[in-house]
């Protein structure tokens, strides 16, 4: 290690005890080394007292105005496409259902037949409502469906974030 490096490392506080002893010996022997060390210390002390040159006072205000003027601050765009498509889909499905109910009602003339169908539906619902196996099955299917939906949503969200970060 040369003297200049040793002196600079000493100023930076990055030398060990052995090197400090080596430096002490050098300082005793050589007056120039002592002068160099004093000059480096002077620079170190003085430099630490120097303050920043301040930015113009109104910079923050000017910058905020610039951002607003240039519309750099983007408002979060709301996603209208997905709800619109979903709503349309629901409306179409409801229309199809309504039309099919209307035509099936037209084809049934006998009121007794309608009562029979309604009674069958009622019996079916009562059977499902009273059966514990169906409860368990329903809960399991719902749980699986919700989990799948959550995973799909999370994957989609991460994918969108990845695309945005590119």
């Amino acid at each position: 290690m040369n003297i200049d490096e040793l002196l600079n490392d000493y100023i930076d506080g990055s030398i060990n005890a052995n090197k400090i002893n080596e430096l002490k010996e050098l300082l005793e022997k050589d007056e120039m080394t002592a002068k160099k060390l004093k000059a480096l210390k002077a620079i170190d002390v003085l430099m630490r007292t120097i303050d920043y040159e301040k930015a113009p006072r109104d910079f923050s205000e000017k910058f905020a105005a610039y951002l607003a003027k240039n519309r750099v601050i983007k408002k979060d765009r709301k996603d209208f496409v997905t709800p619109t498509v979903l709503s349309l889909f629901m409306v179409v499905m409801l229309c199809i259902l309504a039309v099919s109910f209307y035509y099936s009602y037209l084809s049934i003339n006998d009121t007794e037949m309608i009562s029979g169908i309604l009674l069958d539906i009622f019996n079916g619902v009562s059977f499902i409502a009273g059966n514990k196996l169906f409860h368990l099955l329903g809960a399991s299917v719902s749980f699986i469906a919700l989990t799948i939906l959550y995973i799909m949503n999370e994957t989609h969200r991460r994918f969108r974030k990845k695309i945005k970060d590119l």
Partner: peptide
């Protein structure tokens, strides 16, 4: 780079013996 830059200032300071006024 830091050491070299500091040494340049040091050498100029030594020319005027300015370190004696600072410390």
């Amino acid at each position: 780079l830091l050491h070299r830059s500091r040494n340049i200032l040091r050498d100029l300071l030594l020319k005027h013996n300015y370190q004696e006024e600072i410390l």
